[in-house]
């Protein structure tokens, strides 16, 4: 499993709570809070092959302007997937 940190940028501050709710309803996604500059701070846990479609789905959530990746960790996949 890859672990990807990213930011979902919302169009307005009003959009943030519903974006966060939609995002956390998706499997493998967790929110780490809403930032005052209209960002939802999120982490995805998914096979690396699923990261791109997952980001696409997030981009399609109403109110999301863009998704920005900040890190991708592939330690688990490099090690053969045995991470606790």
């Amino acid at each position: 499993m890859a672990i990807m940190g990213f930011l979902a940028r919302c169009a307005t501050a009003r959009d943030c709570p519903q974006v966060e709710a939609a995002l956390t309803a998706m499997p493998g996604l967790s929110s780490y809070g809403i930032h005052r500059d209209c960002y939802v701070v999120a982490v995805a846990e998914a096979p690396s092959t699923e990261l791109e479609p997952l980001l696409q789905q997030v981009k399609e959530i109403p109110g999301v302007l863009s998704c920005l990746v900040t890190s991708v960790n592939l330690e688990d996949e490099q090690d053969g997937g045995g991470m606790p």
């Binding site: 930011l7 780490y32 688990d76």
Partner: peptide
């Protein structure tokens, strides 16, 4: 767990990119 640790680190790095607590190579040691 190691996985939880990596997830928290990923969130901290994302937060630092938008002006949260500054992180660089000195951030969470994943």
């Amino acid at each position: 767990s190691r996985r939880e640790f990596l997830k928290n680190s990923a969130a901290a790095v994302a937060l630092s990119a938008i002006g949260g607590p500054a992180l660089a190579a000195s951030g969470p040691q994943t």
